[in-house]
Amino acid sequence: MTKYMAIVACVATIGVAAPGFAKTYDCKVDEAGSGDNKGIPPHIIVTDDNGKISVIDGLIQNTIGKPIAAQVETENAKRITYTWTLEQIKGDVSQRSASQIARLVFRLTYQKATGTAIASMKPVGYRNTFRAKGKCTVK
């Protein structure tokens, strides 16, 4: 996983050298987050290659094996917010030792002035929303 993310970051960094190439947001967020969250991966990489946006993190790597598409939800002078959805994610329910399938909606907001990252994840159909804060490095 770490090797793959290093390769993604390296390729994206090489692309930044020429005008019009990819911009990479390498974000690290606090795993604890709100509500003792373990649902948001601590390392998220978003690559924006002239509007073609992809995201990879530990959960995506373990379930899909490669970056997935993301979208820009909001972009202005202060922030940019990316969203993506993971479908058919299997989870174990410890109380009944059964499995459930979930659809997880993620959001990552990057504050341009401070480099602050705010990540959230909502399992569709449940009341929970998990949050974590951290920092992004733009490459």
Rank of each mutant, 00 (worst) to 15 (best):
A113L: 11
D57C: 01
S97D: 07
C10L: 12
A18R: 11
C10W: 13
T83W: 06
A9C: 14
E87V: 01
I89S: 00
K38H: 12
S54I: 04
Y82Q: 09
G33S: 14
V8H: 12
V55L: 09
D30N: 06
V29A: 09
V138D: 06
D48M: 10
V105R: 01
D30L: 15
A18K: 10
K66M: 11
I40Q: 01
D49I: 02
A32T: 11
T47E: 11
T85P: 00
T63E: 07
G134D: 05
T2E: 08
N50L: 09
I80K: 00
D26M: 07
A12K: 10
A98I: 13
T116V: 15
K78T: 08
R79V: 03
R107W: 04
E87K: 00
Y4S: 01
V16I: 15
G65M: 03
I80C: 03
N62V: 14
Q100A: 14
G35E: 14
V11T: 10
I7L: 11
A17W: 05
G58N: 04
I14H: 14
A113I: 07
G20F: 12
I40S: 01
G115Q: 02
G39P: 04
A12F: 09
A9R: 06
E73V: 11
Q71S: 12
K66A: 13
K135Y: 08
A98Q: 03
I89C: 00
T114G: 03
E31M: 10
G134F: 12
T114F: 08
N50Y: 11
C27L: 13
V8W: 11
I56Y: 02
K66N: 08
K139P: 08
E73Y: 03
K28T: 09
R103C: 06
D26I: 15
S99F: 09
V105C: 03
T109F: 05
R127Y: 11
T74P: 02
S99T: 13
V93S: 13
D30S: 14
K52M: 03
M121Q: 03
M5N: 06
K66Y: 10
T13Q: 14
S54C: 06
